[in-house]
Design a protein around this nucleic acid. Structure first.
Lengths: 250, 250
DNA sequence: CCATAAATCAATCATTTTCTTTCAAAAACA
DNA sequence: TGTTTTTGAAAGAAAATGATTGATTTATGG
């Protein structure tokens, strides 16, 4: 592996995690310890990072990342935790489908850099995915104005070209009887098909989605695992399914 | 293999990958190590890339790649006239295909607001189209990093869902014998298919495109009408076809 | 708190890979 | 044909790499 490529990977890791261990880099780049140490020295000389015992840390102050500042909103924090957990489910070699939607978009920055392929119907997902250097396929179709999602016949046909290991999806309502729902019928069709084409489906949902019912049904509640943050009282319990994963908040 | 062709391949690889190893180029061009090294030296002298140990990396920052940035400012006025004329060909009720590319993108602001449907493989086209309120379909596929065009199997399949009244296309080379050409083979396939699906095809080309030959052939010169700005002397005449339209410049 | 163990570090060296230079053969050109 | 340009191969120089060493730092247990 060429030097600048390693450097790029190191900086990418740092952007994601703030601190990175030498072992991680060694594994990811398949290089020796010495090489990575030299890399870190060089990058430190160029003021791109600060070396610490065991690895390196991002130097803050000069170019503060917005990711740390905008963490104030409670709901956003929740979403990020859910997204982070969801991203951790992605394994090397996976081909995954990322549904359009604000929760799913948060997953991208936590995705592993390794050998994965992403297919999506979310226009907004594209730039962050490409920035990470992930090979990305868009399914095409009619562009829905307000959500920037691809829907319609073209989207369904584009989807049908692929099969997925894992599917990550946002929904608007989760209800034990009425299943997963979303306002737009056309979007529901796309989601439905994505689920059908995936080995496993994960629905990312913060607490606001439970006990809600929207217009168009996507699937029954048992057809996907739910990744959420709150499974508190008995009232809520009835809305989850047996594959629900609770992400520890706080 | 000829020198300029190797150079073009090298630059193409760099556009896609940011870094390229000498071995890769050797294999792809079937040339010796020495030759490739010479190529890299020359290209570095011309400020087209930066040599690194083991290969070359594309230089970013100050001298951005000429493909998208320099192009978009240099012959802008020319391009806008060509684009404006092309847009005037669009009639009410038309379903048109807009190819990815900097010349075609200029068409959008001149498009009539009426009842038209646009299909495109250009990601950059999307926002201006939606801003104008035109109903827009994207064909999907693999996102090519540097041109933001959709290519590959997904793009071809997405294209096949539609039929077009008119197709507007950019190319890199126009030559009486070698036809319309473009550097990327995958993009050429998409363009080829778009032409096949259209009743009429218009190639938008400023004077820099004539007598140029790029790597991948799209179509013979008689398969499309050319919209251009200069048809001056006899030398140039041989490169145009009988359907060439000259746009009056200034 | 200290002492010990474990982990990490910088420095060095041998090995591998890549680079530059040089030269002769091949190809293109006139 | 002779001349120029391009190409490929070879040899020594330079750079990058990986392993090893002993020093330094951090963690752990008493």
């Amino acid at each position: 592996m060429l030097t600048p490529e390693r450097h790029r990977i190191i900086m990418q890791l740092l952007k994601d995690k703030n601190v990175v261990k030498i072992n991680e880099i060694m594994e990811l780049t398949e290089s020796s310890e010495s090489t990575i140490r030299r890399d870190l020295s060089q990058l430190e000389d160029q003021k791109f990072l600060k070396r610490i015992h065991g690895g390196a840390s991002r130097l803050q102050g000069k170019l503060q990342e917005p990711s740390m500042i905008e963490k104030s909103s409670k709901n956003l924090q929740e979403k990020r935790l859910i997204a982070q957990y969801a991203a951790s489910l992605v394994e090397e070699g996976d081909c995954i489908y990322l549904d359009a939607g604000s929760t799913v978009i948060e997953m991208i920055e936590f995705l592993p850099l390794k050998d994965i392929v992403v297919v999506t119907n979310g226009l907004m997902h594209l730039k962050p995915l490409l920035d990470k250097g992930i090979s990305t396929y868009l399914i095409g179709g009619l562009v829905k104005q307000n959500t920037n999602a691809f829907i319609g016949r073209g989207a369904l046909a584009g989807l049908d070209l692929y099969r997925f290991d894992k599917c990550f999806m946002g929904v608007n309502g989760i209800h034990p009887q009425f299943g997963f729902t979303t306002p737009d019928q056309e979007e529901a069709m796309v989601k439905q098909k994505a689920i059908a084409l995936s080995r496993e489906t994960y629905v990312l949902a913060d607490h606001t989605k439970f006990a809600e019912i929207s217009f168009a049904k996507i699937a029954d509640i048992r057809e996907a695992a739910i990744i959420t943050d709150v499974v508190d009282d008995e009232t809520q319990m009835q809305y989850v399914n047996r594959t629900t994963i609770k992400v520890v908040t706080s």
